[in-house]
């Protein structure tokens, strides 16, 4: 027998009532503007590549993604990205920068366990599920598209 008589249900209600909540409105606002800023800057860069350096649309797109990934990885290594991420929230997670950060941060973190079992194995600890389910979803969509196009 416990000494305290509060039941699990009562207590979980107390917890729910007392727990401070994240401010969804400000978080959304920050995410909207910071995410928009990243994507807007990428768009300008894309426009510059396509119109001033006359790079094909397809290649310019790839270059933009690669640039964002490199910047995010460098900022992660410098310890700046986590500070940005704390402020921006989804704003820095949703663009491709979030994916780069989720690969680079475990790589930095697990360097001490060596390049095979540390960096190599743990690199996908956070991003792994994204890749697995991303590939799976695209395969399913591909099959549906294939069947649809044959009908």
């Amino acid at each position: 027998m416990n000494h305290i008589t509060v039941t699990s249900n009562e207590f979980l209600k107390m917890v729910e009532k007392s727990s401070p909540k994240s401010n969804i409105f400000t978080n959304c606002l920050k995410a909207f503007f910071s995410g928009g800023l990243i994507c807007g800057a990428a768009e300008i860069y894309f426009y510059f590549l396509e119109n001033h350096l006359t790079i094909s649309k397809e290649q310019a797109g790839l270059l933009v993604s690669a640039t964002l990934i490199v910047i995010a990885a460098i900022l992660t290594g410098m310890g700046i990205y986590s500070k940005l991420g704390k402020f921006c929230g989804a704003g820095t997670i949703v663009p491709i920068t979030g994916f780069a950060n989720s690969m680079a941060s475990p790589a930095v973190e697990f360097k001490k366990e060596g390049f095979i079992l540390g960096v190599g194995a743990k690199m996908f600890a956070v991003a792994g599920p994204v890749i697995v389910y991303g590939v799976l979803t695209s395969a399913i969509v591909g099959i549906i598209y294939f069947i649809g196009s044959k009908l």
Partner: peptide, 12 residues
Amino acid sequence: FPLELGSQRPPT
């Protein structure tokens, strides 16, 4: 999570 992951800590 890794320290350098850009995530937010919940208020609790």
